Amino acid sequence: MKSEGHAEASPCEQALAAWCERFPVSSSGRVAVAYSAGADSTALLLAAASRWPGRVTALHVHHGLQAAAHAFETHARAFSERHGVPLQVMHVDASHEPGQSPEDAARQARYAALADMAHSARAVCVLLGQHADDQAETLLLALSRGAGLPGLASMSERFERHGVAFGRPLLATPTATLRRWLLDHGHPFVEDPSNADERFTRNRIRAVLMPAWDACFPGFRPMLARSARHAAQAQRLLDELAAIDLARTGVPPAIDALQALSRDRQGNALRAWLKQEGVAASAAQLDELLDQIADCTTRGHGIRLKVALGLVSRQGAHLRYLPPLQPPTL
């Protein structure tokens, strides 16, 4: 309970405090918030500024993908100035390459820009405003694609990219809760018109599936977030088991040592090994590789399987991953 005369903490402040208990933030250095000017990042920016007065920097990425982007930046500048929070803005080219999804291109450009600005600000971490609705949408999307545990784990509460620590304190907080608090307290935010474009799969999930789930299971969002945490925990255990098994098989793995493991443990170890090589095998490729390993009972038996753009092959007693040949530089 807060003492009399103090305003009760906002839902976002409560979520941020709980996240900081799990992932303590250094008592020195700046804390950055990825601030799009939308509702969720606005609530997070206010909560962070309340928790770390004078230590918070807002980071705004201007993607240039829609006409409204200029208005987002204008609002972000005015709001940050009003609340005494320094703001960094970076304009990026988020256009996508042939065969690349626009969402993926924008996401990669955004993380690179946030990391650059975080380094410049000497921030100890960057906080992101993804919330329980985003987590539920990510999990539903993973289920529809037949994803394994890494996909079902959805978005992690903390991760590192480009040498920067990122945090997601709001994954168990519904966006409706954040918006209601902002409106009740008169804090303005912008609406992204692209969120209503149902050409994008995630927007269709938001517009069609989420209301149907809500009608059948009111309050389901935190429950899906809990399921994602369970999947993440299970994946961490599998990663630990893979590390134990790879310590026994060696890296690259010895075929006879792999054969001493159960098929499931072989598959888990091979996924971890290939991840170290920077590639991911499809379920069909991994099944074929396991079959070839099971059949490898003589010294002259070969193994050769295309995985991603390279090859997994047998070299002596071990498996090897051969990356694709790079064209010679002129």
Rank of each mutant, 00 (worst) to 15 (best):
K2I: 11
A7N: 13
E21G: 03
V33D: 08
A39D: 03
T42D: 07
W52I: 03
T57G: 06
H60M: 02
H63N: 04
A67N: 14
T74D: 04
H75C: 01
A76N: 05
F79T: 08
L87R: 10
Q88G: 12
S101F: 05
P102R: 11
R110K: 12
Y111R: 04
A112P: 04
H119M: 06
R122H: 12
C125G: 03
V126H: 09
V126C: 10
G129E: 02
A132R: 06
A142M: 01
L152R: 00
A153S: 03
S154D: 03
R158K: 09
R158W: 09
F159V: 00
E160T: 12
V164T: 01
G167M: 02
L170N: 13
L178V: 06
H185Y: 07
G186V: 00
P188T: 10
F189L: 02
P193Y: 00
A196L: 10
E198V: 12
T201P: 10
W213I: 15
P218A: 10
P222R: 09
M223F: 12
R229K: 11
R229E: 12
A231D: 06
R248G: 05
G250F: 15
A257L: 06
Q259A: 03
Q259W: 02
A260H: 13
K275M: 03
Q276T: 11
A284H: 01
Q285V: 07
L290G: 02
A294P: 09
D295I: 08
I303Y: 04
R304Q: 12
K306R: 15
V307N: 00
V307P: 01
A308D: 15
V312D: 07
S313Y: 14
R314P: 11
R314F: 09
P324T: 04
P324N: 03
L325D: 13
L330Y: 14
